[in-house]
Deep mutational scan, measured.
Amino acid sequence: DRHTIHIGDITIHLEGFSEEELKLAEELIKRGIHLEEVKRILEELYR
């Protein structure tokens, strides 16, 4: 499954994450956390 996060003019595609995980990812990215770090956090929390 493919999910999309929109932040301003930026569109990020993250596959294989639930709606809850994507909301967390979006919040972290909006707070300035680097995408690679966001992915690592999600994997630690949900895998």
Rank of each mutant, 00 (worst) to 15 (best):
I29S: 03
G16A: 10
E26D: 11
L22S: 07
G8H: 08
E20A: 06
L42A: 00
I5P: 06
D9R: 04
E37V: 10
G8L: 05
I29T: 06
T4H: 15
L14W: 09
I7C: 11
A25H: 02
I5Q: 05
G32T: 06
K23A: 11
R2C: 14
I41S: 01
K39N: 04
R47V: 14
L14K: 02
E43L: 02
S18L: 09
L45Y: 14
E21M: 15
D1P: 06
I33A: 05
I10V: 15
H34V: 12
L45E: 12
H6L: 04
L45R: 05
K39C: 09
R47H: 15
E37G: 02
E15H: 12
L42Y: 00
E43G: 00
A25C: 02
E37L: 13
L14S: 05
E21C: 01
L35Y: 08
E26N: 09
E43Y: 02
L22N: 08
E26V: 14
E27F: 02
D1W: 00
S18G: 14
R47G: 15
H34K: 14
T4V: 12
L22R: 08
E44S: 00
E19D: 15
E26A: 12
I41N: 00
D1N: 11
R47T: 12
E27S: 09
K23L: 08
F17Q: 02
E43H: 02
E27Q: 07
R2S: 13
G16C: 07
E20S: 12
K39R: 11
H6T: 14
D1A: 05
L45H: 14
K30L: 09
K39V: 13
R2H: 14
L24Q: 05
H13M: 10
L28G: 01
H34L: 11
G32P: 03
I12N: 04
E37Y: 04
H3E: 06
E20C: 12
E20H: 09
K39M: 15
G32H: 04
I12W: 00
F17I: 13
R31C: 13
I41K: 02
K23I: 08
T4F: 00
L45I: 15
V38E: 00
E26Q: 11
G8K: 07
R40G: 01
S18Q: 06
E37N: 04
G32W: 07
E15I: 14
R47A: 15
S18W: 13
R31P: 06
E19W: 11
I33L: 14
E26K: 10
L24H: 14
E19M: 09
I29G: 02
T11C: 00
K30A: 14
R47S: 14
E20L: 11
Y46Q: 15
H3G: 12
L35K: 04
I29V: 13
L42C: 00
G32K: 03
K39H: 05
E15W: 09
I10Q: 11
I10L: 06
L45A: 12
E43T: 01
E20D: 10
E36S: 07
L22F: 11
E37Q: 08
D9W: 01
S18F: 08
H6C: 04
I12A: 06
H13C: 09
R40Y: 02
I41W: 08
K30F: 06
R47M: 14
H6S: 10
E36Q: 06
T4L: 02
R40V: 04
I12H: 06
E21L: 14
I33W: 05
E21N: 07
D1H: 10
G16V: 11
L24S: 03
E15R: 05
S18Y: 10
G16W: 12
L22T: 10
H6Y: 00
I10C: 11
E36R: 05
K23R: 14
L45T: 03
L24P: 01
H34W: 06
I12D: 04
I29Y: 03
I5N: 04
Y46V: 15
K39L: 15
I29M: 06
K23H: 14
E27Y: 04
T11F: 09
R47W: 03
E20P: 09
T4C: 13
D9I: 06
K39P: 00
D9M: 07
E27P: 01
E21I: 15
D1C: 13
I29Q: 02
H34M: 10
E44Y: 03
G16F: 10
H34E: 11
H3K: 09
E20F: 07
I12T: 05
E44I: 03
T11I: 07
K30R: 14
G16D: 07
E36Y: 02
H34N: 11
R40N: 03
D1E: 08
H34R: 08
I10T: 12
K30Y: 08
F17S: 04
I10F: 13
A25G: 07
V38D: 00
I7F: 11
H6Q: 15
E44D: 15
L35F: 10
G16R: 11
S18C: 14
E43A: 02
E19V: 12
R2M: 15
E36I: 06
S18H: 13
D9G: 12
R47L: 15
I5E: 08
L45Q: 09
E27A: 14
H3Y: 01
D9N: 10
D9K: 04
L42N: 00
L42H: 00
E44P: 01
E27W: 03
H6F: 00
E37W: 08
A25W: 04
K23Y: 06
F17G: 08
D9Y: 01
L24F: 12
R47P: 15
E15S: 11
E19P: 13
E21S: 13
I5Y: 00
L14Y: 05
K23F: 07
V38G: 00
I29H: 03
I41T: 02
I10M: 11
D9F: 02
E36K: 05
L14N: 02
L28H: 02
R31H: 08
I33Q: 03
G16Y: 08
L24K: 06
L24R: 04
L22D: 03
Y46H: 15
R31N: 11
F17C: 06
H34S: 15
L24G: 03
V38P: 00
E15M: 10
H3L: 10
S18R: 13
L28I: 05
T4Y: 00
K39S: 04
L24E: 03
A25D: 00
E27N: 08
E26S: 10
I10S: 07
I41A: 05
E15Q: 11
I33S: 05
I7T: 06
E20V: 10
I7Y: 06
L22Y: 08
E27I: 11
L14T: 04
E43V: 01
I7G: 08
L35E: 04
H3M: 10
G8E: 07
E20R: 04
L22M: 09
I5G: 11
Y46A: 15
E36F: 01
I12V: 12
L42G: 00
L24I: 11
R31G: 09
T11K: 10
H3C: 04
K30P: 01
I10Y: 07
D1T: 09
L42M: 08
E36C: 04
S18E: 08
R2K: 15
E20T: 15
R2G: 14
K30H: 08
E44C: 09
E26C: 09
R2P: 15
E44H: 01
E43F: 01
E44G: 00
L14I: 08
K30S: 09
T4M: 02
R31Y: 06
I29E: 01
L24V: 14
A25E: 02
E19N: 13
V38N: 00
E21W: 15
E19R: 05
I29W: 02
H13E: 07
G32F: 13
H6D: 08
T4R: 04
L14D: 01
G8M: 02
L45F: 12
I33D: 04
E21Q: 12
G8F: 02
E44T: 01
L14H: 04
H13S: 14
I5V: 07
E36T: 08
E21Y: 15
Y46C: 15
L22A: 11
S18P: 05
I29N: 02
R40P: 00
D1R: 05
Y46F: 15
I33T: 08
I41D: 00
R47I: 15
H3F: 02
E44V: 01
R31E: 06
I10R: 06
L14Q: 02
H6M: 06
L24C: 08
R31F: 07
E21P: 13
E19Q: 13
R40F: 01
T11V: 09
F17W: 08
V38R: 00
S18N: 11
I33M: 12
A25I: 13
I7R: 04
H3D: 10
G32D: 03
I33G: 02
L42S: 00
V38Y: 01
R31W: 10
Y46K: 15
I12S: 05
E15L: 13
I10P: 04
L35V: 09
E43C: 02
L24Y: 13
L22G: 05
I5R: 02
E19C: 11
H34I: 06
I33C: 08
H13N: 08
T4Q: 13
I7Q: 05
E37H: 04
I33P: 02
E21A: 15
R40T: 03
H34G: 14
E36N: 08
I41P: 00
E37T: 09
E15A: 14
H3V: 14
K30G: 08
S18T: 14
L22H: 09
K23Q: 12
H13T: 14
R31I: 07
I10K: 12
S18A: 13
L35P: 11
T11M: 09
R2W: 14
L42D: 00
D9H: 10
E26Y: 12
I5W: 00
I5T: 09
H13W: 08
L28K: 01
I12K: 08
E37D: 12
E26F: 10
E36D: 12
I5L: 01
Y46T: 15
A25M: 09
S18K: 11
L35G: 05
E20Q: 14
E36H: 06
T11H: 14
E43P: 00
I41G: 00
E21K: 07
K30D: 05
Y46N: 15
F17A: 08
H13R: 12
D9P: 13
T11W: 03
I12P: 04
K30C: 05
I5K: 04
H6A: 14
